[in-house]
């Protein structure tokens, strides 16, 4: 345990520390500094105080992106907290072939969002399978513009996010379900509680911390949404960019033509505040959970 040479631990940590400093902590500090400048992505820039934040307040495109992202979070969180739990309940019991089912249910998680996005753009296109089926069932006359109407595009993207994420949170829930004490279930059964009653009175209270964790992870992920919208709209974020998310907007402002690094950094800080807020909410809720 006694290091012979005090430099040795630092040599061991050096490569990882270097990467952390150069590509994460350094850029984060830089983002904070840039947020108070009018720097362009090409270079230069001077401090301009809170001008960027004043501009954010009046930036309609940014608020549109915030609205879209808020909708994304608002739909994704309840969907991700509940649907994967149902899926986990379905694959919990070790019946014949369950390993196969679990692995298959997880496969959308392994695939890249680009692949998943392209698969769904084909399914949701005007002459894709979904519209063909809806027309075949005589539910609609004209194909629904899943990918070309801004609102429908956003809902389609949310659907794709949920579809791809189901397996991931299913595994998280499986781990939590395995830790629910058996005795509680048996005691409830002796007391005459049916499966539904046992689910609400035994399972749900026992896995509530996991539900909070899943909700937070889903909220943070939804706040950072980019690839789904980009791929489903073929890099346009819908007609006139109406379906842009916050990250989509930041990328366009900061890294597009005439990139404004300073202004984009200010918007990035707003995004950081949101994700940090979700994480802090998690620790708070968990602490309250422990006190109960």
């Amino acid at each position: 345990m006694i290091g012979r040479n005090p430099a040795i631990p630092w040599l061991f940590a050096a490569p990882a520390l270097l990467v952390a400093l150069v590509f994460s902590l350094g850029p984060f500090a830089n983002t904070i500094v840039l947020a108070f400048t009018d720097a362009s992505t090409l270079g230069g820039g001077a401090f301009n105080g809170l001008d960027n934040f004043a501009r954010i307040a009046e930036d309609e495109r940014f608020w549109n992106a915030i609205g879209n992202t808020a909708l994304y979070v608002a739909v994704c969180v309840p969907a991700m907290v509940t649907l994967p739990l149902l899926l986990a309940l379905l694959v919990r019991k070790k019946v014949f072939g369950i390993g196969f089912f679990r692995a298959v249910f997880y496969s959308p998680v392994v695939a890249s969002m680009v692949v998943v996005g392209l698969i769904w753009s084909w399914l949701l296109s005007d002459d894709g399978l979904v519209n063909a089926a809806l027309r075949g069932l005589r539910l609609i006359e004209e194909p629904l513009p899943f990918l070309t109407d801004a609102d429908l595009l956003l809902l389609s993207a949310i659907g794709v996010t949920v579809w791809k994420g189901l397996g991931y949170y299913m595994v998280v829930y499986l781990a939590a379900l395995a830790n629910v004490p058996r005795e509680l279930h048996e005691a409830a059964q002796v007391d005459g509680a049916g499966p539904v009653r046992r689910f609400w009175s035994v399972t749900v209270p026992a896995i509530r911390p996991t539900m909070v964790l899943v909700g937070t992870l889903a909220a943070v992920a939804a706040a950072k949404v980019f690839a789904e919208i980009y791929v489903l709209s073929n890099g346009t974020a819908g007609p006139g960019g109406e379906a842009a998310s916050v990250v989509y907007h930041i990328r366009e402002v900061g890294l597009g033509l005439g990139g404004e690094a300073g202004y984009a950094s200010a918007m990035s800080l707003v995004l950081f505040a949101v994700t940090l807020g979700f994480s802090l909410l998690l620790t708070r809720l968990n602490r309250r959970e422990e006190r109960l």
Partner: peptide
Amino acid sequence: TMIIPFEVIMVSVFLT
């Protein structure tokens, strides 16, 4: 580094 989302710092990472 784990609580700083990449999306937040992507512009600066590009500059670096």
